[in-house]
């Protein structure tokens, strides 16, 4: 574990805590895409099946359990909680997320390291995570005026991805035989999707204005 990896994991954890704070405390999920949250729940459910088959560290297992629990909790809140579900922008959150799942699955069947059940699902989760933020970014663009918590949530998610890239560069130079092409390429695609958002986030932060994305 290097400092970039830890910073990445902590940004990821923090982004989810921010979202849970918004949903649980303010009882609002305005501006949050349920489509993206459902995709993340699927990403974690297909990637972390290995908690049953192998052990890496207590840290690793606890983080996986947290990501699984939190993603399904957020989806539950947005779908079924009496108060929270009323604040969901259903009419704006129209991205057809099902159309992302099938291509990612087909790609995972074609491009993977080993053709085993767990490996294909793990690869699928990487491809799906790369594009899972798209419904959220589309929703942000539609809502234009983004509330602070939602903006910070997306910012810390993007920070998590950026730290992971630094972590891969660091590991490439400090470890032997550390090549993970599939992880790297899908990670790069994922981080690139945040570039536009980052630009407007930093701009609004420097001008101390509310985050506004162009139409």
């Amino acid at each position: 574990m290097n400092i970039f990896r830890l910073a990445g994991d902590m940004s990821h954890l923090f982004s989810i805590l921010l979202l849970l704070l918004k949903i649980h405390t303010i009882k609002s999920c305005a501006g949050v895409s349920l489509k993206t949250q459902e995709l993340y729940a699927l990403v974690f459910a297909t990637r972390y099946l290995d908690i049953f088959t192998g052990y890496i560290s207590l840290y690793n297992t606890l983080m996986k359990m947290f990501f699984l629990w939190s993603s399904f909790t957020i989806v539950w809140y947005m779908r079924y909680h009496n108060v929270v579900r009323r604040s969901y922008d259903k009419d704006q959150d129209t991205f057809r997320h099902y159309f992302l799942i099938l291509p990612c699955f087909i790609l995972a069947l074609l491009v993977h390291e080993k053709f085993t059940f767990l490996e294909v699902l793990w690869t699928f989760s990487l491809y799906l995570e790369a594009v899972a933020i798209l419904p959220q970014l589309v929703l942000l663009q539609r809502t234009r005026n983004v509330d602070n918590l939602t903006g910070h949530y997306v910012f810390f998610l993007g920070a998590y991805r950026s730290f992971y890239i630094l972590n891969w560069i660091y590991r490439y130079f400090t470890e032997q035989n550390y090549y993970k092409w599939i992880t790297w390429i899908s990670g790069l695609v994922q981080t690139a999707l945040y570039a536009d958002f980052f630009y407007y986030y930093v701009k609004s932060w420097r001008n101390s204005e509310r985050l506004q994305l162009p139409a």
Partner: peptide, 10 residues
């Protein structure tokens, strides 16, 4: 040398 574990990342 640091040992690399398969899929030790989250």
């Amino acid at each position: 040398e640091v040992e690399t574990d398969e899929k030790d990342e989250l």
